[in-house]
Design a protein around this nucleic acid. Structure first.
Lengths: 326, 326
DNA sequence: CTGAAGCATAAGCTCAGCTGATGCTCGATG
DNA sequence: CATCGAGCATCAGCTGAGCTTATGCTTCAG
């Protein structure tokens, strides 16, 4: 009988490529992972790993085995979900991973509605960068988490995880003054800030990559002066005249005054990610529902009306001036 | 993460109904099974077992979980098979369970062809009563085994196992002298030996049940004088005039002379049983192929020609007189 | 009423599997 | 070419999961 714990290590190895990374992702020492994979290989009777330089790679047999491991883990996840569903009440701990902007914009409301609807549920929230979400979910450290998909930054398909869309936000360019130009021309509009001082997120984050790629798409490389992840701070900096920045819609719900927001023809999609098979778990489903409700209550992003072009908007505008560039 | 070993215990419990039986089937002490199931229940967070009198029964949640367990175990079995298949050579140990008659009739030939075709394969044969095959397969004590299906004795569907037919044998009535009556009338023909002394297998075996049911079907209860499982011995006893017996076709390949064999309108089907998902395992497939080849070499039972009615027969008749009663 | 069958629990032991230390190899870098 | 860091394997040692044995309780059959 193949050991499922060991198969899980193998699956993670197929995703990360080094034993050390597997160990870090699943909270073991590299030594333990190495030993367990050796045992798995011995039991399998076939080489599963191939030492290549100082790394290690899966053999074809290993890759096939990973496919089976995926299926088994997914089925076990389903089983756990069905067990929890057979409980009359949605209860127990559910660990939620969320990025700072969403935490600020959605979390208070979502937690309140969760507490009202499922008093026995114990949501535990951790802020986490969307880039780290996948291993944390697979390792069982989180049960639900939010990830991003930016235009220009396709998120790779993550095996073992299932996602469904939560919301689709317009991206804005935040500045103090509007240039006296026609902003109607989509991507090229960004070019009007080609010589501005830019404020981006720190390198390595999706937001940072998104900003750079978008500017490159408009034909220039931004002069990055400040690197700040927290959008509220970023907006304050912009309002104080220290630069311009690209920010997502969720970040501008409490924008400071004296800020010009130009709607860009770029979008950021936020997805709810869970382990494959766990979507039917009632606690997970409840969290997803609460997050959706919170999004609806903020106002369905696509339904907003732009101060510049006059389209429908279901919520009060931010106090800042808003102009549509799309 | 649900523990697959514990799920296996639960699955076995759903089949046997008592913890003690599970323990015996899977070679644990009842105490260990009880502890593991308690742990599983605690992890599940939902009652899976229901104490009813001095037995224990699965709750609906438990039954659902068993379905998932089946799926997981089957997939793991498939994975193991594919691993073995990715080896260039069919090798390693394969444990075979076989009943005495088949052992005598098929095994030498099957083992010879296996040794020739797959020298690295190490078949290990154990004689086992078909009634005990299911738990032994599920427990991993056997990899392939032969089971029976008699007319009148439907074998229950065994979860976790997959079967495919190996051969279909005609049943014979063995006696020293033929009655001066028309044997053409199927089941009723048996009635001509209603007052004979009968030799059956020991109670509890499928053969025993089969004989009794067949006689009851013909309207009488046989007078059982001797109870002997070994068909060769049974035939010697019959030839020596100590009674009559119902024997399957495989048993009459080396029947003693001076024996009358009356073909009965009854059949015994022999099936190859494996764990679900293990059918593609190359060692298992090799054993199955060898058994089939052995059956073919003996002569395809349905293709034989009856000494009484003149139908086709591809192998030499047993030396005994053979008459068709169907 | 008695005994057997079946389950649960406690106590103790054993080994699977983890950590931490060490050494080796590969590849990048100056 | 020498050096250094990253990555993997192996060893020794320890800890706890999980097994067995022993015991007691409950239920049911005779």
């Amino acid at each position: 009988m193949l050991d499922v714990r060991r198969l899980r290590l193998l699956r993670e190895l197929s995703l990360r490529g080094t034993i050390a990374a597997v160990a870090e992702a699943l909270a073991y020492t590299p030594s333990a992972v190495s030993q367990q994979l050796s045992t798995l290989e011995r039991e399998a009777g076939v080489p599963l790993l191939e030492r290549t330089g100082r790394r290690v790679r899966l053999t074809p047999a290993g890759q096939k085995l990973v496919a089976h491991a995926e299926a088994v883990l997914e089925r076990l996840e389903q089983a756990a979900g069905e067990l929890a569903a057979s409980c009359h009440e949605v209860a127990g701990r559910v660990r939620i991973g969320i990025f700072p902007t969403a935490a600020r914009a959605l979390l208070p409301d979502a937690l309140t509605s969760l507490a009202g609807r499922h008093p026995a549920l114990e949501p535990m929230v951790s802020e986490i960068d969307p880039a780290d979400v996948a291993p944390a979910l697979r390792a069982g450290e989180l049960d639900v988490a939010l990830v991003h998909e930016y235009d220009f930054v396709p998120s790779p398909v993550e095996p073992g995880l299932a996602t469904e869309p939560l919301c689709d936000e317009t991206m804005y360019l935040a500045a103090t003054t509007l240039p006296h130009v026609d902003l109607a021309d989509g991507a090229a509009a960004l070019g009007h800030w080609r010589d501005a001082a830019w404020i981006t997120a720190t390198p390595g984050t999706l937001c940072h990559t998104m900003t750079l790629r978008a500017c490159h798409g408009a034909g220039f490389t931004p002069h990055v002066r400040h690197q700040v992840d927290e959008f509220a701070t970023v907006l304050e900096l912009v309002a104080a005249g220290h630069g311009v920045a690209m920010v997502p819609q969720l970040a501008v719900t409490d924008a400071p005054p004296n800020l010009s927001l130009v709607r860009l023809p770029l979008h950021r999609r936020t997805l709810i990610a869970v382990r494959s098979g766990a979507g039917a778990h009632p606690a997970v489903a409840a969290v997803a529902a609460a997050l959706r409700a919170a999004v609806r209550r903020i106002g369905d992003p696509p339904a907003r009306r732009c101060g510049g072009c006059g389209r429908a908007d279901t919520r009060p505008h931010p106090r800042a001036t808003e102009v549509c560039a799309s």
